[in-house]
């Protein structure tokens, strides 16, 4: 086989032969409208725009982690058992955010409520009481939850 894209010079009547370039492939978007001769598609200028869920869900890939939930303490905000959470560690754990916190060494999902003087972690289910953050409690914020992905099985 002739090395692709390379030029070969010969001495006889044929002066040059070009190998066929087959290395690169261009994938073209599928035209959804039929080809109508003579009239250009009005969508031509917009072809090439595609949606990538990563753009929507992951702002800072190096700081983004996926975790899975176990339990029903956050159902009020739409986080169910076995859902997938998108967690961005680069974000500030501000008042009102859903966060992952390490409470006594265990990764837990809660809503962070900051009042003037105190801080507490609330569940989104009336069956679970809020947890006050005190000196005695070991609590480290781990990351901020930015989305929940619930897949139907």
């Amino acid at each position: 086989m002739i090395e692709t894209g390379q030029k070969y010079t010969l001495g006889s009547s044929i002066s040059e032969i070009y190998g066929v370039e087959q290395k690169s492939r261009v994938s073209l978007p599928l035209y959804s409208c039929g080809v109508s001769a003579g009239f250009p598609s009005p969508a031509d200028d917009y072809i090439g725009q595609q949606l990538d869920l990563n753009d929507l869900l992951v702002r800072n890939p190096a700081a983004t982690f996926f975790v899975r939930t176990a339990g029903d303490s956050m159902t009020g905000v739409g986080i169910n058992d076995n859902d997938l959470l998108v967690v961005d560690r680069s974000l500030e754990p501000a008042h009102g955010k859903i966060i992952i916190a390490a409470i006594n060494g265990e990764l837990t999902v809660k809503r962070l409520v900051k009042t003037g003087t105190s801080c507490r972690l609330e569940a989104e289910n009336p069956n679970y009481p809020p947890i006050e953050i005190t000196e005695d409690l070991s609590c480290i914020t781990w990351g901020v939850v930015t989305s929940v992905i619930h897949q139907f099985r």
Partner: peptide
């Protein structure tokens, strides 16, 4: 493989 395999993601507690 917490960060590289969908079936081995870390589990976070939602039971308290």
């Amino acid at each position: 493989a917490y960060t590289t395999n969908w079936s081995e993601l870390p589990i976070v507690n939602a039971t308290s």
